[in-house]
Protein backbone atom coordinates (compact mmCIF):
# COMPACT_ATOMS: atom_id res chain seq x y z
CA UNK A 1 0.00 0.00 0.00
CA UNK A 2 1.31 3.41 -0.97
CA UNK A 3 0.51 5.44 2.14
CA UNK A 4 0.34 8.88 0.54
CA UNK A 5 -2.05 7.66 -2.13
CA UNK A 6 -4.11 4.78 -0.73
CA UNK A 7 -4.58 6.02 2.84
CA UNK A 8 -6.39 9.26 1.90
CA UNK A 9 -8.64 7.37 -0.51
CA UNK A 10 -9.59 4.76 2.08
CA UNK A 11 -10.00 7.28 4.89
CA UNK A 12 -12.07 9.65 2.76
CA UNK A 13 -14.28 6.92 1.34
CA UNK A 14 -14.90 5.24 4.68
CA UNK A 15 -15.57 8.52 6.50
CA UNK A 16 -17.97 9.69 3.80
CA UNK A 17 -19.65 6.27 3.78
CA UNK A 18 -20.17 6.17 7.57
CA UNK A 19 -21.48 9.76 7.61
CA UNK A 20 -23.86 8.86 4.79
CA UNK A 21 -24.94 5.72 6.67
CA UNK A 22 -25.87 7.77 9.74
CA UNK A 23 -27.86 10.17 7.56
CA UNK A 24 -29.44 7.38 5.52
CA UNK A 25 -30.56 5.56 8.67
CA UNK A 26 -32.46 8.70 9.70
CA UNK A 27 -34.10 9.14 6.30
CA UNK A 28 -35.02 5.56 5.38
CA UNK A 29 -37.52 4.91 8.22
CA UNK A 30 -39.34 8.12 7.35
CA UNK A 31 -39.69 6.96 3.73
CA UNK A 32 -37.50 9.88 2.65
CA UNK A 33 -34.35 8.18 1.39
CA UNK A 34 -34.75 9.91 -1.98
CA UNK A 35 -34.08 13.20 -0.16
CA UNK A 36 -30.48 12.03 0.06
CA UNK A 37 -30.21 11.93 -3.75
CA UNK A 38 -31.67 15.41 -3.88
CA UNK A 39 -29.62 16.74 -0.94
CA UNK A 40 -26.34 15.54 -2.42
CA UNK A 41 -27.11 17.76 -5.44
CA UNK A 42 -28.75 20.60 -3.52
CA UNK A 43 -25.74 21.11 -1.25
CA UNK A 44 -23.70 22.51 -4.15
CA UNK A 45 -24.38 26.26 -3.88
CA UNK A 46 -23.40 26.34 -0.18
CA UNK A 47 -20.22 24.41 -0.85
CA UNK A 48 -19.23 26.67 -3.70
CA UNK A 49 -19.82 29.83 -1.67
CA UNK A 50 -17.86 28.26 1.20
CA UNK A 51 -15.00 27.49 -1.18
CA UNK A 52 -15.05 30.99 -2.55
CA UNK A 53 -14.83 32.45 0.95
CA UNK A 54 -12.30 30.11 2.51
CA UNK A 55 -10.56 27.88 0.00
CA UNK A 56 -10.14 24.12 0.27
CA UNK A 57 -9.76 23.73 4.03
CA UNK A 58 -12.01 26.33 5.59
CA UNK A 59 -14.87 25.62 7.97
CA UNK A 60 -17.02 27.86 5.78
CA UNK A 61 -17.33 24.96 3.33
CA UNK A 62 -19.20 22.85 5.90
CA UNK A 63 -21.15 25.84 7.18
CA UNK A 64 -22.23 26.63 3.62
CA UNK A 65 -23.36 23.03 3.19
CA UNK A 66 -25.34 23.11 6.44
CA UNK A 67 -27.10 26.39 5.60
CA UNK A 68 -28.00 25.21 2.09
CA UNK A 69 -29.37 21.86 3.23
CA UNK A 70 -31.33 23.53 6.03
CA UNK A 71 -32.90 25.78 3.39
CA UNK A 72 -33.55 22.83 1.09
CA UNK A 73 -35.07 20.55 3.74
CA UNK A 74 -37.05 23.48 5.18
CA UNK A 75 -38.34 24.29 1.69
CA UNK A 76 -39.35 20.68 1.04
CA UNK A 77 -41.19 20.47 4.41
CA UNK A 78 -42.92 23.80 3.82
CA UNK A 79 -44.10 22.80 0.36
CA UNK A 80 -45.20 19.40 1.64
CA UNK A 81 -47.31 20.74 4.50
CA UNK A 82 -48.58 23.97 2.93
CA UNK A 83 -48.99 23.16 -0.73
CA UNK A 84 -49.42 19.38 -0.93
CA UNK A 85 -47.93 19.22 -4.43
CA UNK A 86 -47.92 15.43 -4.67
CA UNK A 87 -45.54 12.65 -3.69
CA UNK A 88 -41.97 13.66 -4.46
CA UNK A 89 -42.99 16.67 -6.57
CA UNK A 90 -41.57 19.18 -4.10
CA UNK A 91 -38.20 17.36 -4.12
CA UNK A 92 -38.19 17.18 -7.91
CA UNK A 93 -38.96 20.91 -8.08
CA UNK A 94 -36.39 22.15 -5.59
CA UNK A 95 -33.22 20.11 -6.07
CA UNK A 96 -32.60 21.02 -9.74
CA UNK A 97 -33.01 24.71 -8.83
CA UNK A 98 -30.47 24.40 -6.00
CA UNK A 99 -28.10 22.41 -8.20
CA UNK A 100 -28.55 24.93 -11.01
CA UNK A 101 -27.72 27.75 -8.59
CA UNK A 102 -24.59 25.82 -7.59
CA UNK A 103 -23.48 25.48 -11.21
CA UNK A 104 -24.08 29.21 -11.77
CA UNK A 105 -22.14 29.99 -8.55
CA UNK A 106 -19.27 27.80 -9.79
CA UNK A 107 -19.17 29.76 -13.02
CA UNK A 108 -19.52 33.17 -11.37
CA UNK A 109 -16.80 32.56 -8.76
CA UNK A 110 -14.34 31.31 -11.35
CA UNK A 111 -13.31 28.45 -9.04
CA UNK A 112 -13.12 26.02 -11.95
CA UNK A 113 -10.23 27.97 -13.42
CA UNK A 114 -8.26 27.81 -10.15
CA UNK A 115 -8.47 24.00 -10.11
CA UNK A 116 -10.02 23.97 -6.61
CA UNK A 117 -13.20 22.27 -7.74
CA UNK A 118 -14.79 21.62 -11.10
CA UNK A 119 -17.90 20.03 -12.53
CA UNK A 120 -16.25 16.64 -13.09
CA UNK A 121 -15.19 16.42 -9.45
CA UNK A 122 -18.64 17.42 -8.29
CA UNK A 123 -20.32 14.77 -10.41
CA UNK A 124 -17.91 11.85 -10.26
CA UNK A 125 -15.76 12.57 -7.24
CA UNK A 126 -12.07 13.15 -6.97
CA UNK A 127 -10.91 10.03 -5.14
CA UNK A 128 -8.31 9.15 -7.77
CA UNK A 129 -6.69 12.56 -7.37
CA UNK A 130 -6.25 12.42 -3.60
CA UNK A 131 -2.62 12.61 -2.61
CA UNK A 132 -1.29 13.23 0.87
CA UNK A 133 2.28 14.04 0.01
CA UNK A 134 3.43 14.65 3.59
CA UNK A 135 2.20 11.24 4.76
CA UNK A 136 5.08 9.14 3.51
CA UNK A 137 5.32 6.89 6.58
CA UNK A 138 3.03 6.02 9.50
CA UNK A 139 5.11 8.15 11.85
CA UNK A 140 4.38 11.20 9.67
CA UNK A 141 0.77 10.96 10.81
CA UNK A 142 1.83 12.02 14.30
CA UNK A 143 3.13 15.39 13.05
CA UNK A 144 0.64 18.31 13.06
CA UNK A 145 2.23 19.66 9.87
CA UNK A 146 1.18 16.48 8.03
CA UNK A 147 -2.46 17.08 8.95
CA UNK A 148 -2.23 20.74 7.98
CA UNK A 149 -1.45 19.62 4.44
CA UNK A 150 -4.08 16.86 4.34
CA UNK A 151 -6.29 16.80 1.23
CA UNK A 152 -9.40 18.99 1.58
CA UNK A 153 -11.97 16.30 0.65
CA UNK A 154 -10.47 13.97 3.26
CA UNK A 155 -10.70 16.62 5.96
CA UNK A 156 -14.30 17.47 4.99
CA UNK A 157 -15.21 13.79 5.28
CA UNK A 158 -13.33 13.31 8.58
CA UNK A 159 -14.80 16.42 10.22
CA UNK A 160 -18.24 15.46 8.92
CA UNK A 161 -17.83 11.98 10.38
CA UNK A 162 -16.62 13.25 13.77
CA UNK A 163 -19.50 15.72 14.07
CA UNK A 164 -22.27 13.40 12.92
CA UNK A 165 -21.03 10.45 14.97
CA UNK A 166 -20.88 12.61 18.12
CA UNK A 167 -24.36 14.00 17.47
CA UNK A 168 -25.81 10.53 16.87
CA UNK A 169 -24.29 9.08 20.03
CA UNK A 170 -25.30 12.02 22.24
CA UNK A 171 -28.80 12.35 20.83
CA UNK A 172 -29.47 8.63 20.30
CA UNK A 173 -32.53 8.45 22.61
CA UNK A 174 -34.17 11.46 20.96
CA UNK A 175 -33.39 10.29 17.43
CA UNK A 176 -34.60 6.78 18.17
CA UNK A 177 -37.89 7.99 19.64
CA UNK A 178 -38.44 10.49 16.86
CA UNK A 179 -37.87 7.81 14.22
CA UNK A 180 -39.97 5.16 15.94
CA UNK A 181 -43.08 7.35 16.08
CA UNK A 182 -42.65 10.94 14.96
CA UNK A 183 -46.27 11.90 15.72
CA UNK A 184 -46.09 10.68 19.31
CA UNK A 185 -42.70 12.28 19.93
CA UNK A 186 -43.96 15.57 18.50
CA UNK A 187 -47.07 15.41 20.67
CA UNK A 188 -45.58 14.71 24.08
CA UNK A 189 -42.07 16.16 23.72
CA UNK A 190 -42.34 18.78 20.96
CA UNK A 191 -39.06 20.55 21.73
CA UNK A 192 -37.04 17.32 21.81
CA UNK A 193 -38.72 16.21 18.57
CA UNK A 194 -37.90 19.53 16.90
CA UNK A 195 -34.28 19.28 18.07
CA UNK A 196 -34.11 15.72 16.69
CA UNK A 197 -35.39 16.97 13.30
CA UNK A 198 -32.80 19.77 13.29
CA UNK A 199 -30.04 17.27 14.08
CA UNK A 200 -31.24 15.05 11.25
CA UNK A 201 -30.97 17.97 8.84
CA UNK A 202 -27.49 18.77 10.12
CA UNK A 203 -26.33 15.18 9.70
CA UNK A 204 -27.79 14.99 6.17
CA UNK A 205 -25.91 18.22 5.32
CA UNK A 206 -22.59 16.88 6.61
CA UNK A 207 -23.07 13.64 4.71
CA UNK A 208 -24.04 15.41 1.49
CA UNK A 209 -20.93 17.61 1.72
CA UNK A 210 -18.68 14.63 2.45
CA UNK A 211 -20.14 12.58 -0.42
CA UNK A 212 -19.97 15.42 -2.93
CA UNK A 213 -16.30 16.02 -2.16
CA UNK A 214 -15.29 12.36 -2.21
CA UNK A 215 -17.31 9.96 -4.34
CA UNK A 216 -19.23 12.65 -6.22
CA UNK A 217 -22.93 13.41 -6.32
CA UNK A 218 -23.88 10.74 -8.81
CA UNK A 219 -23.11 7.80 -6.53
CA UNK A 220 -23.97 9.55 -3.24
CA UNK A 221 -27.38 7.88 -3.21
CA UNK A 222 -25.68 4.45 -3.13
CA UNK A 223 -23.65 5.47 -0.07
CA UNK A 224 -26.71 6.84 1.72
CA UNK A 225 -29.00 3.94 0.96
CA UNK A 226 -27.05 0.75 0.14
CA UNK A 227 -25.49 -0.12 3.52
CA UNK A 228 -28.58 0.94 5.50
CA UNK A 229 -30.92 -1.10 3.29
CA UNK A 230 -28.58 -4.08 3.71
CA UNK A 231 -28.43 -3.64 7.49
CA UNK A 232 -32.20 -3.27 7.80
CA UNK A 233 -32.70 -6.95 7.05
CA UNK A 234 -30.34 -8.04 9.81
CA UNK A 235 -30.70 -5.49 12.62
CA UNK A 236 -33.11 -5.29 15.53
CA UNK A 237 -32.23 -1.84 16.85
CA UNK A 238 -30.97 1.43 15.41
CA UNK A 239 -27.54 0.78 16.96
CA UNK A 240 -27.37 -2.53 15.13
CA UNK A 241 -28.39 -0.83 11.88
CA UNK A 242 -25.41 1.53 12.23
CA UNK A 243 -22.91 -1.16 13.15
CA UNK A 244 -23.97 -3.63 10.46
CA UNK A 245 -24.17 -0.87 7.84
CA UNK A 246 -20.63 0.24 8.68
CA UNK A 247 -19.54 -3.37 8.26
CA UNK A 248 -21.30 -3.55 4.89
CA UNK A 249 -19.69 -0.30 3.72
CA UNK A 250 -16.24 -1.48 4.81
CA UNK A 251 -16.75 -4.74 2.95
CA UNK A 252 -17.83 -2.80 -0.13
CA UNK A 253 -14.70 -0.62 0.06
CA UNK A 254 -12.49 -3.73 0.32
CA UNK A 255 -14.28 -5.40 -2.59
CA UNK A 256 -14.00 -2.20 -4.63
CA UNK A 257 -10.27 -2.11 -4.03
CA UNK A 258 -10.00 -5.78 -4.94
CA UNK A 259 -11.88 -5.35 -8.21
CA UNK A 260 -9.93 -2.22 -9.11
CA UNK A 261 -6.61 -3.98 -8.57
CA UNK A 262 -7.77 -7.10 -10.43
CA UNK A 263 -9.14 -5.27 -13.47
CA UNK A 264 -6.03 -3.10 -13.63
CA UNK A 265 -3.82 -6.19 -13.59
CA UNK A 266 -5.87 -8.44 -15.89
CA UNK A 267 -7.73 -6.11 -18.27
CA UNK A 268 -5.46 -3.10 -18.02
CA UNK A 269 -8.56 -1.04 -17.25
CA UNK A 270 -8.98 1.12 -14.15
CA UNK A 271 -12.70 1.49 -13.55
CA UNK A 272 -13.86 4.59 -11.71
CA UNK A 273 -13.66 3.76 -7.97
CA UNK A 274 -16.96 5.45 -7.13
CA UNK A 275 -18.76 3.44 -9.84
CA UNK A 276 -17.45 0.09 -8.63
CA UNK A 277 -18.30 1.04 -5.04
CA UNK A 278 -21.88 1.96 -5.99
CA UNK A 279 -22.33 -1.40 -7.71
CA UNK A 280 -21.01 -3.32 -4.70
CA UNK A 281 -23.26 -1.39 -2.36
CA UNK A 282 -26.34 -2.25 -4.42
CA UNK A 283 -25.28 -5.89 -4.72
CA UNK A 284 -24.80 -6.14 -0.94
CA UNK A 285 -28.15 -4.40 -0.32
CA UNK A 286 -29.85 -7.02 -2.48
CA UNK A 287 -27.93 -9.95 -1.00
CA UNK A 288 -28.39 -9.04 2.68
CA UNK A 289 -32.10 -9.97 2.89
CA UNK A 290 -31.26 -13.32 1.29
CA UNK A 291 -28.60 -13.87 3.96
CA UNK A 292 -31.11 -12.80 6.64
CA UNK A 293 -33.61 -15.35 5.39
CA UNK A 294 -31.01 -18.11 5.28
CA UNK A 295 -30.01 -17.37 8.88
CA UNK A 296 -33.63 -17.26 10.06
CA UNK A 297 -33.77 -13.50 10.73
CA UNK A 298 -36.88 -12.80 8.78
CA UNK A 299 -37.03 -9.01 9.15
CA UNK A 300 -39.25 -6.90 6.90
CA UNK A 301 -37.62 -5.05 4.03
CA UNK A 302 -37.23 -1.26 4.30
Amino acid sequence: MLLSQDLPIILTLLSAAVTAILAGSLLLPRGQIMISEAASHAVLPGLIIGFALSGDHGWQVLLGAIVTIALFVGGVSWLRTRHRLGPGVEIAALFPVFFGLGILALSLTGLEKTGTIDVDHILFGSLELLFWFDAGTWSDLLRPATWASAPGPMMTALVGLALSLSLCVIAYPFLNRSLMDAHHAGLITPVAAAVARALETLIVALAAAACLRSAGVVVAIALFSGPVIAAWSLARTLWQVWLIAIGVASLAVVLTYGVSLATAAVLDVEPRISGVLALWLVVLAVLAPVLAQLTGRNRPLP
Partner: peptide, 12 residues
Protein backbone atom coordinates in the same frame (compact mmCIF):
# COMPACT_ATOMS: atom_id res chain seq x y z
CA UNK B 1 -50.08 5.33 12.05
CA UNK B 2 -46.79 3.67 13.01
CA UNK B 3 -44.30 1.99 10.70
CA UNK B 4 -43.93 -1.33 12.50
CA UNK B 5 -40.96 -2.30 10.32
CA UNK B 6 -38.70 0.05 12.28
CA UNK B 7 -35.80 -1.86 13.88
CA UNK B 8 -36.81 -1.50 17.51
CA UNK B 9 -37.98 -3.67 20.37
CA UNK B 10 -41.36 -3.56 22.08
CA UNK B 11 -39.67 -2.36 25.27
CA UNK B 12 -38.21 0.67 23.40
Amino acid sequence: EIDWRFPGKVRD
